[in-house]
Amino acid sequence: MAERLLNVRNLDVVLGREPGATTLVRDLSFSLDAGELLCIVGESGCGKTITARSVIGLNRTDPRFRLTGAIDFDGRNLLDLDERAMRQIRGARIAMIFQDPMSSLNPLHRISAQIDEALAIHTDLGKAARRARVLELLAAVGIPKPETRIDAYPHQFSGGMRQRAMIALALAGDPDLLIADEPTTALDVTTQKQILLLLARLRAETGMAVIFITHDLGVVAEIADRVLVMYAGQCVESGPVADVFRNPQHPYTAGLLASIPAANRGKVRRLASIKGAPPVLSEGRPVGCAFRPRCDYAFDRCADEPQLTATGSPDHPARCWLSGAARHSLAGQGAPA
């Protein structure tokens, strides 16, 4: 098999020093092939953004964080690179877009100047060629009549247009991997749809791989090749999107899927829901399986932390003492309390 583009192995991100250190990401492993789209999904505070920022090396210089494990990208462990080497990868090979476009677009500079700056860093195009390329990029992300918009400031754009400009900025270095952190969460569904279609088209045209972070399982179903479900800083399940939706292997994934009031589902008297709320990691992690306090299937064994293990199919592992099949048969006889 071809070498994977990205291979994250046993990543831990710890905040602060012992005692009182908090493990925000714990034993996280996942990989990505060139051109693949992986969705990372999970509820607020489960560690999605921390994971993304770790991959692109944004919290490596922050002395409060300690990163261990390995992030292999194109054959090199990014955690071993010095900041200079990392800077050559960031933007050129790996680019990131954020939920709030204003956090990566500078409000004081014209859109054109910001994309031009990225081009000047990541390409050897001359001034005129860069200007032409900025126009191309803006057209590619669907900004109508880019020649009339190129010198606008970010605040003169609508939310959806700003998101498009940010995607154009991320594409300037022609990255192999684009990390998109909730790029559509703040947008209306109609604008979200436009952006999702845009990303799908750009991916087909450029062959770049995408890590798309979201808390919306509808978005996952719409765009993902594979999905990774996070809970309390861990991967609790991952696999091909159709498998995970059809046959969830972790009770958290199953609970999430059941609790969505989907627009295509008729009204039911009660929605399924998961009791309680996700743990606040800074207040301590539950002992054993982190999902245990909310889980309807928890039993003695769950006092020990389960590992991510293969279930029915090898590319669909889950972190649960009960395999999907075993859980269903237990549920039939009345699950252990």
């Binding site: 209306d188 109609t190 604008t191 999702l196 919306d216 996952v220 719409e222 159709a242």
Partner: peptide, 21 residues
């Protein structure tokens, strides 16, 4: 435009609304 939590419903034959409000 509403994304449905069902990978099989992908690619419904509908055109997104164009442009901004």
């Amino acid at each position: 435009s509403v994304p449905l939590p069902d990978p099989a419903a992908r690619g419904r034959a509908v055109r997104p609304i164009e442009g901004d409000m």
